[in-house]
């Protein structure tokens, strides 16, 4: 697992009040019991952890460029933003 994935899963696990080991890549935020406030908090924590800007508007999470459909999708999106930042 990449460092990015490890950190992102750590943040999501903390938000879901679960052990990191209990979060799997195919789960959705819904599966993990993370609501809209939890999502906004997770995004903030990820931005702080990686010093990146995540394009996300809570008015329509599905239409944001940032894919939040599963843990794997979030990890992939964050990896992309981190790579862009170092490019």
């Amino acid at each position: 697992m990449s460092d990015v994935a490890d950190k992102v899963i750590g943040i999501i696990a903390e938000q879901a009040v679960l052990d990191k080991g209990d979060v799997s890549m195919d789960q959705t935020l819904d599966d993990l019991g993370i609501d809209s406030l939890g999502l906004v908090e997770s995004i903030f924590a990820i931005e702080e952890a990686f010093d990146i800007q995540i394009p996300f508007n809570a008015n329509d999470p599905a239409a944001s460029e940032f894919d939040i459909s599963s843990v794997a999708a979030i990890v992939k999106a964050v990896e992309g933003l981190v790579a862009e930042q170092h490019a």
Partner: peptide, 14 residues
């Protein structure tokens, strides 16, 4: 600055 920054955090602003 502080007033708008706080609202920005909530991600509901256009």
């Amino acid at each position: 600055f502080g007033g708008v920054k706080a609202w920005e955090g909530l991600r509901v602003m256009s």
